[in-house]
Amino acid sequence: MVDDRGRAAGWQLSDKPAARLAGKDILGIQEMSVSEIGLILDTAESFKEISTREIKKVPTLRGKTVINLFFEASTRTRTSFEIAAKRLSADTINISTSSSSVVKGETLIDTAKNLEAMNPDCIIIRHSASGAPHLLARLMHVPVINAGDGAHEHPTQALLDLFTVREKKGRLAGLKVAIVGDILHSRVARSNIYGFTKMGAEVLLAGPQTMRPAEVERMGVRWHTRLSEVIPQADVIMMLRIQLERQGGGFFPTLREYSRFFGLNLEVLKTAQPEVLIMHPGPINRGVEISPEVADGPFSVILDQVTNGVAVRMALLYLLVGGEREADRSSL
Protein backbone atom coordinates (compact mmCIF):
# COMPACT_ATOMS: atom_id res chain seq x y z
CA MET A 1 0.00 0.00 0.00
CA VAL A 2 1.26 3.43 -0.88
CA ASP A 3 -0.40 6.51 0.59
CA ASP A 4 -0.71 9.92 -1.08
CA ARG A 5 2.79 10.91 -0.06
CA GLY A 6 4.21 7.87 -1.73
CA ARG A 7 4.90 6.14 1.59
CA ALA A 8 4.60 2.44 2.04
CA ALA A 9 2.24 1.91 4.94
CA GLY A 10 2.89 -0.16 8.04
CA TRP A 11 6.61 -0.61 7.71
CA GLN A 12 8.81 -0.96 10.82
CA LEU A 13 12.58 -1.11 11.21
CA SER A 14 13.79 -4.50 12.36
CA ASP A 15 16.80 -6.71 11.88
CA LYS A 16 15.08 -8.37 8.99
CA PRO A 17 13.21 -6.26 6.49
CA ALA A 18 9.51 -7.06 6.41
CA ALA A 19 9.51 -6.06 2.78
CA ARG A 20 12.39 -6.78 0.44
CA LEU A 21 12.96 -5.18 -2.91
CA ALA A 22 11.72 -7.26 -5.77
CA GLY A 23 14.62 -8.29 -7.95
CA LYS A 24 18.15 -8.40 -6.73
CA ASP A 25 19.75 -5.43 -8.45
CA ILE A 26 19.36 -1.67 -8.38
CA LEU A 27 20.35 -0.74 -11.90
CA GLY A 28 18.12 2.20 -12.63
CA ILE A 29 15.05 4.16 -11.64
CA GLN A 30 13.49 3.31 -15.00
CA GLU A 31 12.79 -0.25 -13.85
CA MET A 32 11.52 0.74 -10.37
CA SER A 33 7.89 0.90 -9.37
CA VAL A 34 6.34 3.75 -7.44
CA SER A 35 5.85 1.50 -4.42
CA GLU A 36 9.48 0.38 -4.48
CA ILE A 37 10.63 3.99 -4.55
CA GLY A 38 8.20 4.75 -1.72
CA LEU A 39 9.53 1.85 0.32
CA ILE A 40 13.13 3.02 -0.08
CA LEU A 41 12.31 6.62 0.85
CA ASP A 42 10.29 5.55 3.92
CA THR A 43 13.04 3.20 5.02
CA ALA A 44 15.58 6.00 4.61
CA GLU A 45 13.58 8.17 7.01
CA SER A 46 14.07 5.61 9.75
CA PHE A 47 17.78 5.39 9.01
CA LYS A 48 18.39 9.12 8.94
CA GLU A 49 18.14 9.28 12.71
CA ILE A 50 21.00 6.82 13.17
CA SER A 51 23.48 9.28 11.66
CA THR A 52 22.58 11.84 14.33
CA ARG A 53 23.36 9.51 17.25
CA GLU A 54 26.47 9.58 19.39
CA ILE A 55 27.22 6.01 18.31
CA LYS A 56 26.36 6.04 14.63
CA LYS A 57 26.21 2.34 14.18
CA VAL A 58 23.66 -0.47 14.17
CA PRO A 59 24.46 -4.18 13.85
CA THR A 60 22.04 -4.81 10.99
CA LEU A 61 24.57 -5.97 8.40
CA ARG A 62 27.13 -7.48 10.73
CA GLY A 63 29.11 -10.17 8.91
CA LYS A 64 28.12 -8.93 5.48
CA THR A 65 30.67 -7.79 2.91
CA VAL A 66 30.02 -4.87 0.59
CA ILE A 67 32.41 -4.11 -2.26
CA ASN A 68 32.70 -0.65 -3.74
CA LEU A 69 33.97 -1.15 -7.29
CA PHE A 70 34.72 2.27 -8.72
CA PHE A 71 36.10 2.53 -12.24
CA GLU A 72 35.60 6.27 -12.30
CA ALA A 73 36.72 8.97 -9.94
CA SER A 74 34.25 9.69 -7.16
CA THR A 75 34.55 11.17 -3.72
CA ARG A 76 31.00 11.84 -2.64
CA THR A 77 29.25 8.71 -3.86
CA ARG A 78 31.97 6.26 -2.87
CA THR A 79 32.34 7.77 0.60
CA SER A 80 28.59 7.90 1.05
CA PHE A 81 28.23 4.21 0.21
CA GLU A 82 31.14 3.32 2.46
CA ILE A 83 29.77 5.26 5.41
CA ALA A 84 26.31 3.81 4.84
CA ALA A 85 27.67 0.26 4.86
CA LYS A 86 29.85 0.89 7.91
CA ARG A 87 27.00 2.41 9.91
CA LEU A 88 25.16 -0.84 9.26
CA SER A 89 28.24 -2.77 10.50
CA ALA A 90 29.04 -4.32 7.13
CA ASP A 91 32.64 -4.90 6.12
CA THR A 92 33.49 -2.68 3.18
CA ILE A 93 36.15 -3.05 0.53
CA ASN A 94 37.01 -0.24 -1.85
CA ILE A 95 38.41 -0.96 -5.25
CA SER A 96 39.13 2.24 -7.11
CA THR A 97 40.77 2.53 -10.44
CA SER A 98 40.68 5.53 -12.67
CA SER A 99 41.37 3.43 -15.71
CA SER A 100 38.79 1.30 -17.38
CA SER A 101 39.01 -2.46 -17.21
CA VAL A 102 40.10 -2.49 -20.83
CA VAL A 103 43.09 -0.32 -20.05
CA LYS A 104 43.86 -2.36 -16.97
CA GLY A 105 44.11 -5.52 -19.02
CA GLU A 106 41.45 -7.51 -17.18
CA THR A 107 37.93 -7.55 -18.51
CA LEU A 108 34.99 -6.53 -16.40
CA ILE A 109 33.69 -10.09 -16.68
CA ASP A 110 36.91 -11.49 -15.23
CA THR A 111 36.87 -8.92 -12.45
CA ALA A 112 33.28 -9.88 -11.67
CA LYS A 113 34.06 -13.60 -11.58
CA ASN A 114 37.01 -13.05 -9.27
CA LEU A 115 35.04 -10.90 -6.88
CA GLU A 116 32.15 -13.34 -6.88
CA ALA A 117 34.56 -16.09 -5.94
CA MET A 118 35.24 -14.22 -2.68
CA ASN A 119 31.56 -14.36 -1.68
CA PRO A 120 30.65 -10.73 -1.16
CA ASP A 121 27.05 -9.82 -0.28
CA CYS A 122 26.71 -6.76 -2.47
CA ILE A 123 28.64 -5.06 -5.26
CA ILE A 124 28.38 -1.34 -5.84
CA ILE A 125 29.71 -0.26 -9.20
CA ARG A 126 30.54 3.07 -10.78
CA HIS A 127 31.69 2.94 -14.39
CA SER A 128 32.13 5.38 -17.25
CA ALA A 129 30.47 2.97 -19.69
CA SER A 130 26.68 2.93 -19.81
CA GLY A 131 25.42 -0.58 -19.14
CA ALA A 132 28.51 -1.82 -17.27
CA PRO A 133 26.45 -2.58 -14.11
CA HIS A 134 24.00 -4.55 -16.27
CA LEU A 135 26.86 -6.68 -17.58
CA LEU A 136 27.98 -7.29 -14.00
CA ALA A 137 24.45 -8.06 -12.81
CA ARG A 138 23.95 -10.65 -15.55
CA LEU A 139 26.96 -12.55 -14.24
CA MET A 140 26.66 -12.22 -10.48
CA HIS A 141 24.30 -13.78 -8.02
CA VAL A 142 24.70 -11.08 -5.39
CA PRO A 143 22.87 -7.76 -5.61
CA VAL A 144 24.52 -5.15 -7.81
CA ILE A 145 23.90 -1.47 -7.14
CA ASN A 146 24.57 1.01 -9.90
CA ALA A 147 26.48 3.98 -8.48
CA GLY A 148 26.45 5.72 -11.87
CA ASP A 149 27.04 4.30 -15.34
CA GLY A 150 28.12 6.56 -18.17
CA ALA A 151 25.33 8.91 -19.17
CA HIS A 152 22.73 6.28 -18.37
CA GLU A 153 21.55 6.25 -14.75
CA HIS A 154 22.57 7.17 -11.23
CA PRO A 155 19.66 5.72 -9.28
CA THR A 156 20.89 6.37 -5.75
CA GLN A 157 21.44 10.05 -6.58
CA ALA A 158 17.84 10.29 -7.80
CA LEU A 159 16.58 8.52 -4.68
CA LEU A 160 18.41 10.93 -2.40
CA ASP A 161 17.14 13.86 -4.46
CA LEU A 162 13.57 12.57 -4.17
CA PHE A 163 14.09 12.06 -0.45
CA THR A 164 15.42 15.60 0.01
CA VAL A 165 12.58 17.21 -1.92
CA ARG A 166 9.94 15.14 -0.13
CA GLU A 167 11.51 16.01 3.21
CA LYS A 168 11.58 19.75 2.46
CA LYS A 169 8.31 20.09 0.55
CA GLY A 170 6.30 17.37 2.24
CA ARG A 171 5.29 15.91 -1.10
CA LEU A 172 6.47 15.11 -4.60
CA ALA A 173 3.25 14.97 -6.60
CA GLY A 174 2.34 18.19 -8.34
CA LEU A 175 5.74 19.85 -7.96
CA LYS A 176 7.58 21.41 -10.86
CA VAL A 177 11.22 20.40 -11.01
CA ALA A 178 13.60 22.23 -13.35
CA ILE A 179 16.80 20.41 -14.34
CA VAL A 180 19.27 22.77 -15.97
CA GLY A 181 22.47 22.26 -17.93
CA ASP A 182 24.19 19.41 -19.73
CA ILE A 183 21.25 17.02 -19.95
CA LEU A 184 22.85 15.10 -22.85
CA HIS A 185 25.73 13.72 -20.81
CA SER A 186 23.96 13.50 -17.44
CA ARG A 187 23.00 10.25 -15.77
CA VAL A 188 21.69 12.28 -12.84
CA ALA A 189 19.22 14.00 -15.16
CA ARG A 190 17.98 10.71 -16.60
CA SER A 191 17.45 9.05 -13.23
CA ASN A 192 15.74 12.14 -11.85
CA ILE A 193 13.48 12.41 -14.91
CA TYR A 194 12.28 8.87 -14.23
CA GLY A 195 12.09 9.38 -10.48
CA PHE A 196 10.23 12.68 -10.34
CA THR A 197 7.80 11.86 -13.15
CA LYS A 198 7.00 8.48 -11.57
CA MET A 199 6.25 10.20 -8.27
CA GLY A 200 3.85 12.63 -9.94
CA ALA A 201 6.07 15.69 -10.31
CA GLU A 202 6.51 17.60 -13.54
CA VAL A 203 10.03 17.88 -14.98
CA LEU A 204 11.19 20.84 -17.04
CA LEU A 205 14.57 20.73 -18.75
CA ALA A 206 16.66 23.68 -19.84
CA GLY A 207 20.05 23.96 -21.43
CA PRO A 208 21.91 24.73 -24.64
CA GLN A 209 20.17 23.15 -27.65
CA THR A 210 23.38 21.16 -28.29
CA MET A 211 22.83 19.36 -24.98
CA ARG A 212 19.27 18.28 -25.60
CA PRO A 213 19.15 14.48 -25.91
CA ALA A 214 17.34 13.29 -29.05
CA GLU A 215 13.57 12.97 -28.59
CA VAL A 216 13.89 13.69 -24.86
CA GLU A 217 10.25 14.82 -24.71
CA ARG A 218 9.26 11.17 -25.07
CA MET A 219 10.53 10.74 -21.51
CA GLY A 220 7.54 12.80 -20.41
CA VAL A 221 9.35 16.11 -19.92
CA ARG A 222 9.32 19.54 -21.51
CA TRP A 223 12.38 21.11 -23.09
CA HIS A 224 13.27 24.79 -22.86
CA THR A 225 16.22 26.66 -24.28
CA ARG A 226 16.03 29.64 -21.93
CA LEU A 227 16.59 29.65 -18.20
CA SER A 228 13.99 32.42 -17.94
CA GLU A 229 11.31 30.04 -19.18
CA VAL A 230 11.74 27.57 -16.32
CA ILE A 231 13.01 29.47 -13.26
CA PRO A 232 9.84 31.43 -12.39
CA GLN A 233 7.61 28.36 -12.37
CA ALA A 234 9.92 25.84 -10.68
CA ASP A 235 9.44 24.58 -7.13
CA VAL A 236 12.82 22.88 -7.37
CA ILE A 237 15.83 23.94 -9.46
CA MET A 238 18.48 21.33 -10.01
CA MET A 239 21.68 22.66 -11.58
CA LEU A 240 23.93 20.12 -13.30
CA ARG A 241 27.67 20.20 -13.33
CA ILE A 242 29.08 21.35 -16.64
CA GLN A 243 32.05 19.19 -17.58
CA LEU A 244 34.84 21.59 -18.39
CA GLU A 245 36.04 19.46 -21.29
CA ARG A 246 32.72 19.96 -23.13
CA GLN A 247 33.94 23.44 -24.05
CA GLY A 248 36.21 21.90 -26.66
CA GLY A 249 33.50 19.58 -27.96
CA GLY A 250 31.57 22.26 -29.77
CA PHE A 251 28.65 22.14 -27.34
CA PHE A 252 29.02 25.80 -26.36
CA PRO A 253 31.55 28.52 -27.21
CA THR A 254 33.03 29.40 -23.82
CA LEU A 255 32.39 28.80 -20.13
CA ARG A 256 31.88 32.54 -19.86
CA GLU A 257 29.00 32.44 -22.31
CA TYR A 258 27.58 29.26 -20.78
CA SER A 259 27.58 30.88 -17.37
CA ARG A 260 25.87 34.00 -18.68
CA PHE A 261 22.98 32.14 -20.31
CA PHE A 262 22.64 28.99 -18.19
CA GLY A 263 24.24 29.83 -14.86
CA LEU A 264 22.17 30.36 -11.72
CA ASN A 265 23.08 33.57 -9.93
CA LEU A 266 21.30 35.91 -7.52
CA GLU A 267 19.92 37.97 -10.38
CA VAL A 268 18.20 34.97 -11.93
CA LEU A 269 17.14 33.67 -8.53
CA LYS A 270 15.10 36.86 -7.96
CA THR A 271 12.59 35.58 -10.49
CA ALA A 272 12.16 32.23 -8.72
CA GLN A 273 9.37 31.06 -6.43
CA PRO A 274 9.71 32.28 -2.81
CA GLU A 275 10.11 28.75 -1.39
CA VAL A 276 12.28 27.38 -4.19
CA LEU A 277 14.80 24.60 -3.46
CA ILE A 278 18.21 24.82 -5.12
CA MET A 279 19.88 21.47 -5.71
CA HIS A 280 23.11 20.27 -7.28
CA PRO A 281 24.45 16.71 -7.42
CA GLY A 282 28.00 17.96 -7.03
CA PRO A 283 30.80 18.51 -7.44
CA ILE A 284 29.95 22.13 -8.24
CA ASN A 285 31.87 24.47 -10.49
CA ARG A 286 31.50 27.62 -8.46
CA GLY A 287 30.88 30.60 -10.67
CA VAL A 288 30.10 28.52 -13.74
CA GLU A 289 26.71 26.79 -13.48
CA ILE A 290 25.98 28.20 -10.05
CA SER A 291 27.29 31.27 -8.28
CA PRO A 292 28.76 30.86 -4.78
CA GLU A 293 26.06 33.10 -3.26
CA VAL A 294 23.36 30.79 -4.57
CA ALA A 295 25.18 27.55 -3.74
CA ASP A 296 25.71 28.70 -0.16
CA GLY A 297 22.47 30.68 0.10
CA PRO A 298 19.29 30.10 2.07
CA PHE A 299 17.48 28.20 -0.69
CA SER A 300 20.28 25.75 -1.24
CA VAL A 301 19.78 22.17 -0.02
CA ILE A 302 23.00 20.94 -1.61
CA LEU A 303 24.51 19.72 1.66
CA ASP A 304 21.19 18.22 2.79
CA GLN A 305 21.41 16.11 -0.35
CA VAL A 306 24.76 14.79 0.80
CA THR A 307 23.49 14.05 4.32
CA ASN A 308 20.43 12.28 2.95
CA GLY A 309 22.58 10.27 0.57
CA VAL A 310 23.91 8.26 3.49
CA ALA A 311 20.41 7.50 4.83
CA VAL A 312 19.10 6.50 1.41
CA ARG A 313 22.06 4.22 0.77
CA MET A 314 21.70 2.65 4.22
CA ALA A 315 18.07 1.95 3.39
CA LEU A 316 18.99 0.37 0.06
CA LEU A 317 21.68 -1.86 1.56
CA TYR A 318 19.30 -2.90 4.32
CA LEU A 319 16.51 -3.77 1.90
CA LEU A 320 18.83 -5.63 -0.47
CA VAL A 321 21.27 -7.34 1.88
CA GLY A 322 19.54 -7.29 5.28
CA GLY A 323 18.21 -10.49 6.81
CA GLU A 324 19.36 -14.01 6.28
CA ARG A 325 19.87 -15.64 2.99
CA GLU A 326 18.08 -18.94 2.59
CA ALA A 327 21.42 -20.72 2.49
CA ASP A 328 22.53 -19.17 5.78
CA ARG A 329 19.39 -20.25 7.55
CA SER A 330 19.49 -23.84 6.36
CA SER A 331 23.07 -24.26 7.56
CA LEU A 332 22.14 -23.44 11.16
Binding site: Q30, G131, D149, G150, A151, A214, R218, M219
Partner: peptide, 15 residues
Protein backbone atom coordinates in the same frame (compact mmCIF):
# COMPACT_ATOMS: atom_id res chain seq x y z
CA UNK B 1 21.66 5.07 -33.44
CA UNK B 2 20.90 8.57 -32.19
CA UNK B 3 17.29 8.73 -31.05
CA UNK B 4 14.98 8.02 -28.17
CA UNK B 5 16.67 4.72 -27.38
CA UNK B 6 20.16 6.23 -27.18
CA UNK B 7 18.71 9.01 -25.02
CA UNK B 8 17.30 6.57 -22.50
CA UNK B 9 20.33 4.26 -22.53
CA UNK B 10 22.78 7.13 -22.16
CA UNK B 11 24.81 5.84 -25.09
CA UNK B 12 26.30 8.29 -27.56
CA UNK B 13 24.31 8.42 -30.77
CA UNK B 14 25.15 8.33 -34.46
CA UNK B 15 22.58 10.36 -36.41
Amino acid sequence: NEGFTSTTLGLRGIP
